[in-house]
Design a protein around this nucleic acid. Structure first.
Lengths: 255, 255
DNA sequence: CCTACAACACTTGCATGCAAGACAAAAGGG
DNA sequence: CCCTTTTGTCTTGCATGCAAGTGTTGTAGG
């Protein structure tokens, strides 16, 4: 009887856990290539070509394209072609607005509800970053990312981090267009320290000020790149930028 | 010479304008059905079934499913089935956080940069809502939506509205699960009026206070529904909710 | 009666094929 | 020499078929 009511309490979901699908791998691979700057804005992409290169069918590649288009990383023109999306200036500015609004709001909340365990975790995070001030830059920026995500999670809005992630994605693209300045790390680290200081001292004004300076500091370097490489950016919505592909192999001989 | 530099100033994009694709239509159709509450959380969905019902192939339906999964409206379990997604409590709370943070930040900015033309537009928007206090509810809520979007646009962050849209989507689902209370419209209208009042008087504190009360007012009705219909909600991340489909037609005869 | 095992009917993931559309290049007319 | 027309090749959108995997059902065994 009770058996009939709940034949399997929860095991029915047993193997329903989402295993990593090929389309998802392609998506992550392409996203990494685009955000890391290995494929520049305007670069032509073809479902056929990518599928052939990866030894796959068009289907999973196509699904990855569709998802990446929603992320604003690829532009698909129906019967013409797909291209690495240009970076829209409006996305940069609005992304900054979203990020600053959310991270500052979370920070203000965190100062009020901070738990002792989280306090020690924050200090540990700062220590980790200090260890990576020298050496390879990637581990430091990974810790940077993790630090901001942790702040959001400690504020009790873990799922809001994905919103910040998409908002800052175009910023990341811009950042990767520049060469890495070793001094940058020290500046970022100093600002992070000040944020944590403000939190631990329960001083919301100081923490918020530090956070705002931090985020805007990141933003000015973005603006610098925009001036140096205007070719990668689009001002209007449906960009007028770059789809000059199709060299189109000559039909006969050029002769 | 100048011709060679820009062979076709922009016309190359001529017909590349995205025409509405079938997959997109399916997506909008299904999203409307889910958000409007015509398909309740846990309802089983099958690519085959939907495709057959709409007289289409599986491909466009599948693409719509994938997009809707990203929106958090559908849950896909790889070799088992797809279902209308349960409403995650965390999404409700975090969505509220995102919405309140962004709309309040935009409002604060708008008070400072308000243009005369926008001021008259805001008054017109309020007047429109007043006209729809009676009669069908849909036109009013459409004006409601448009009002909030206009605030974001006037603040100079038009593209940030889409972020709010996704954040509030789960709220909309919950709202549609309730019967419409005629008094609700008057309360919403009053709060909108107070927001506009605060803006026009250049009183950020008053405007922000009204906005916060407004958004939280929407939120309490959400919490009421959660208590009345707990079966549609999921507390944990990878829900334990409802995938008991598969009556599975008996192999022979039941005899 | 309860439990363990095997077949089944269904699902989604991926591969493949065809058709409509769009631009680029070459050919034809002024 | 410049402009219009035709041809060609590529693209994405959609249809279809096969394979792998899952929970359920029915049956056999204790």
């Amino acid at each position: 009887m009770a058996r009939e009511e709940r034949p399997l309490t929860e095991p029915r979901i047993a193997a329903a856990r989402r295993r990593t699908t090929v389309a998802m791998e392609v998506r992550n691979h392409l996203r990494d290539s685009i955000v890391a700057g290995r494929m520049l804005p305007g670069h032509p992409l073809s479902e056929n070509e990518v599928a052939a290169r990866l030894g796959l069918s068009r289907t999973p590649v196509r699904e990855a394209f569709i998802k990446l288009e929603e992320e604003g990383l690829i532009a698909i023109y129906p019967q013409y072609g797909s291209f690495v999306a240009p970076i829209r200036v409006a996305d940069i500015y609005d992304g900054q607005f979203v990020r600053e609004s959310l991270e500052c709001a979370a920070l203000a909340k965190l100062v009020e509800i901070l738990q002792p365990a989280d306090a020690t975790a924050l200090e540990a995070a700062v220590a980790t970053q200090r260890r990576h001030l020298m050496g390879e830059p990637d581990p430091f920026f990974e810790a940077d990312e993790h630090f901001h995500a942790a702040l959001m999670q400690m504020a009790g809005h873990e799922r809001a981090w994905s919103v910040v992630e998409t908002a800052k994605r175009q910023h990341d693209r811009v950042r990767r267009l520049t060469v890495h300045d070793p001094l940058k790390r020290r500046a970022v680290f100093k600002e992070h320290s000040e944020i944590v200081d403000g939190i631990l001292r329960r001083d919301p004004a100081a923490a918020l000020d530090a956070m705002r300076r931090h985020l805007r500091g990141v933003f000015v370097s973005v603006e610098a790149v925009m001036q140096r490489h205007p070719e990668f950016f689009a001002l209007t919505a449906e960009s007028a930028a770059a789809l000059p592909k199709r060299p189109a192999k000559p039909r006969r001989a050029v002769a």
